[in-house]
Design a protein around this nucleic acid. Structure first.
Lengths: 223, 223
DNA sequence: TTGCGTATTAAACAGTTGTATCATGGGCTC
DNA sequence: GAGCCCATGATACAACTGTTTAATACGCAA
């Protein structure tokens, strides 16, 4: 191994290897999950020694937790374009922006942020970080969605029902990541490149909008 | 390598270790997935020897494959009530029957059939059995759903779009299993007992119906 | 220089995994 | 009974896991 990376520990806590470990671990954890990912593979990818994980993070779980905190600071925020759209007046456009942003984070291959994939990994296989993740990220995003849904359906529906509707919306874009191997088999025409992702966001938005608007009518009709 | 697979036990000793292994492995595989489940835990639950897995199924993966084939014969079929409703004339009722059947299989705790849970496990973590599973089970169910959706939306929508709509419907009930820990945190009022499952099926059906009917209107309007 | 603290390396450790090996038992035909 | 086949049992084994320990290189102050 050609080493010769260093030198210069600019700070006592942030060396080169520590950062590289976080990056490498993020990718591998996102791809394989906590259990399947091995420390040896992570340190190999990071070009570090086997002991580096235990030295810098105590143990494997400490690294896992640190990866989340690191990722939340680096790429957990919305892009300016999405922020602008989410702040707009039309709830339809806000719904589209919300759906598209999540879908991109889950399916876009080119970008580095494995945070989204780590997040859904934690959803299906909780490891203890889930509580922190729910409170600091998932719930805020969910409440944003709930607000959008509420604005679309109006005041004639209970809060519980609005949350169920928001869950139905989120379920759709999450599904394309959760069950990706099956979805691509059942929908062979699907192309999940950038254009395909936007088209999918269109579908999910239209489908959900249609549901929410019609639900409103039903409520008005039956009220 | 003695390939003593399926043809051996023809006698009434069918209730032997082979059967018990399939049952125990089904539960454990469904709960923990292929990788996390250990052979030792399976044989302990089955009351069999450690070697039993290798003897009867060659290796762990052979057991896994056999569990699927076994489960498909035992509990892969619809119950009579669901069959009756699915054969009915009203597509709304058929949609409700489809959604409720899948939801029950995924969330009902009392029943034995871990087939549904095994199925979604394979969706999120394919292990090679997925192809067989898709062709023999998932796709048929999906095509049933596609048929129902087509009947609701009419002929003014492309087949690709109909499949996307069916995917949106399926995504909803699958989500309650995939992301169960998160869903229950975000919707604390949810009770996933039998009554709660039926209520959930009502919501998903109404949401999807509203979407499909409104989509039809949009198609007519823009046509 | 010497000493000290920190980061990296290499090797070893203890635990668990799936699988293979060898021996045992039990029913069957001869 | 003897011989044989099939199912089971107890144990061994090699590979892999996360973690620990001991040794080394480097920077810097006294």
């Amino acid at each position: 191994m050609g080493n010769s990376k260093e030198q210069t520990n600019r700070t006592a806590t942030e060396g080169g290897t520590r950062e590289r470990l976080l990056e490498a671990a993020g990718e591998i954890f996102a791809e394989k999950g906590f259990r399947k990912a091995t420390v040896r593979e992570i340190v190999r990818k990071a070009g570090a020694n086997l002991n580096a994980v235990n030295y810098h993070f105590g143990d494997k779980e400490g690294l896992y937790r640190a990866v989340f905190e690191h990722a939340l600071h680096v790429c957990g925020h919305l892009d300016p374009e999405t922020i602008r759209k989410l702040a707009g007046p039309a709830p339809e456009q806000r719904l589209r922006a919300h759906v598209a942003w999540h879908l991109r984070g889950l399916l876009s291959e080119q970008r580095p942020p494995w945070l989204a994939r780590l997040r859904v990994r934690e959803m299906t296989e909780p490891t203890g970080v889930l509580d922190l993740l729910v409170e600091r990220h998932i719930r805020p995003h969910f409440l944003t969605l709930v607000g959008i849904v509420r604005e679309i359906v109006g005041d004639g529906i209970t809060e519980d029902r609005v949350r169920l509707c928001a869950t139905s919306v989120a379920a759709q874009y999450l599904h394309y990541h959760h069950a990706k191997p099956v979805v691509t088999r059942l929908n062979p025409e699907l192309k999940l490149d950038d254009a395909g992702i936007e088209a999918l966001a269109d579908h999910i938005t239209q489908f959900s909008l249609a549901a929410l608007e019609n639900l409103l009518r039903d409520e008005e009709g039956s009220a």
